[in-house]
Design a protein around this nucleic acid. Structure first.
Length: 433
DNA sequence: ATAGGGTTAG
């Protein structure tokens, strides 16, 4: 037995995580943190200026903060602006409404709408679009459509393509692709012609509904109408074709897009890489990655995750470890998905101790195991004939507020039965009904 | 001239 080869230092995973800790540390001082800090510092400085800057200047700065999804921060900044007696405008109101909606507080958004009215200024298209989108985000699509209809009926505004797009998106998200398609047709017949965004929304939704041929038809029609497809259009179609085993057509679509002068992006390649891996051909996936690099595109976390998962599914966890090292060399930070794949890989190879080790380590690193992480570990524990440990983790995950999903239960019942605990499994099952 | 909508990955 060669103990050196098994030693921690030579374990790609172990050395990789050491590397990763350094990365996490350096990250704190580069991205995110300081950027927001800088913005906040500038904000304080602006607030103290005499006379204070225009609200437009504040809005500009705050827009950047919204872009990095700091919605609560944004709202507290507006509160400060208000306290300083600086007059706000409709832009500020709309940004605030959007933040409330993103924070799952649509009701506050509508409260701000009332404020706008009280101040005697009419809301604009952006106000309404934001609120409609807020209802969509809250899974209240029916109300979103009702609001939209009311605006049309009462002639409160003339919808533009963004408002139509918001409603079309809502209908798609709620599973009403056909209704969305009808609204798109309505746009085509009216004066506010659909642009590529509305077509993309419906095309993507058709693909997800397994109606790839209808999506392709719509794509053709859109092109005939002179609306140019963009990279998102092609991504949706390529994804749709790959999902239903039509890889050859997907490859042709890739050639077509290039002929049309639309360059595939990292996302486009990720779809292909992922599709190759899912089909079990990690080698082809590697080739796709080489192609993307040759074209000057940089693989991202998703690219690496797909490769790692591809190897792990085949039980080739050592190969996956090599990919992980390559990922770290490019300064990319593995996320929970990366580790879920690796844990799964170890479990598949019956190396439950390594899986456990990784499970511990990600928590030290500040990553939170999710339902998939726990379910994977539970499955591994059953497979290594340790039903007690499996049950313990099952209880622990719930104690930590992680609700088991249907997969967890499937794994649990299957594992218990396989470990001669059929009657216990049945009792547990009954208790769930 | 500052706000609101679309795709992908696990």
């Amino acid at each position: 037995m060669n103990y050196t080869r098994l030693g921690l230092l030579h374990n790609p995973i172990a050395s990789a995580s050491h590397f990763n800790q350094r990365l996490l540390l350096s990250l704190k001082h580069t991205r995110g943190f300081t950027k927001l800090d800088d913005a906040l510092q500038l904000f304080d400085e602006m607030l103290q200026r005499q006379p204070p800057p225009n609200i437009i200047e504040f809005n500009k700065l705050i827009t950047g903060i919204v872009k990095i999804k700091q919605y609560s921060t944004t709202l507290s900044l507006y509160k400060q602006i208000k306290l300083m007696g600086i007059p706000t405008d409709l832009y500020a109101m709309n940004i605030s409404i959007n933040c409330h909606c993103r924070l799952d507080q649509v009701a506050y958004g509508f409260a701000l709408l009332a404020t706008i009215f009280k101040q005697g200024h009419p809301p604009d298209l952006a106000t309404y679009s934001t609120l409609i989108n807020g209802l969509v985000l809250a899974d209240r699509v029916f109300e979103a459509v009702e609001l939209f209809k009311k605006l049309l009926r009462d002639k409160l505004c003339e919808p533009n393509h963004i408002m139509y797009g918001t409603v079309i998106n809502g209908l798609c998200k709620a599973g009403h692709t056909i209704k969305a398609f009808e609204l798109l047709r309505y746009m085509e017949s009216g004066s506010c012609k659909p642009d590529v965004v509305q077509y993309n929304t419906v095309i993507d939704s058709l693909c997800k509904d397994r109606m790839v041929d209808n999506a392709l038809q719509l794509f053709t029609k859109m092109t005939e109408k002179g609306v140019l497809a963009n990279v998102i259009t092609y991504n949706s179609l390529i994804q749709g074709l790959c999902n239903f085993g039509r890889e050859t057509e997907a490859a042709k679509m890739l050639r077509d897009m290039e002929e049309e002068g639309v360059s595939p992006g990292v996302d486009t390649f990720n779809i292909l890489v992922n599709s190759c891996c899912k089909q079990g051909s990690v080698k082809d996936a590697q080739l796709a990655v080489e192609t993307m690099i040759r074209r000057g595109l940089h693989p991202d976390v998703i690219t690496y995750n797909a490769l790692i998962d591809g190897y792990c599914l085949r039980g080739e966890v050592d190969e996956a470890g090599k990919v992980l090292n390559g990922m770290l060399e490019t300064n990319l930070v593995p996320d929970i998905v990366t580790y879920n794949s690796l844990i799964n890989g170890y479990c598949k190879k019956k190396q439950i101790d390594k899986a456990r080790h990784l499970f511990q380590e990600i928590q030290h690193k500040g990553l939170t195991p999710n339902v998939i992480t726990c379910s994977t570990m539970i499955q591994g524990m059953f497979q290594s004939r340790n039903p007690a440990a499996a049950r313990e983790l099952f209880n622990k995950m719930q104690a930590k507020g992680l609700a088991p999903d249907i997969c967890t239960y499937r794994i649990l019942f299957h594992g218990m039965c396989k470990n001669s605990q059929c009657s216990d499994a049945l009792v547990l099952f009954r208790s769930l009904l």
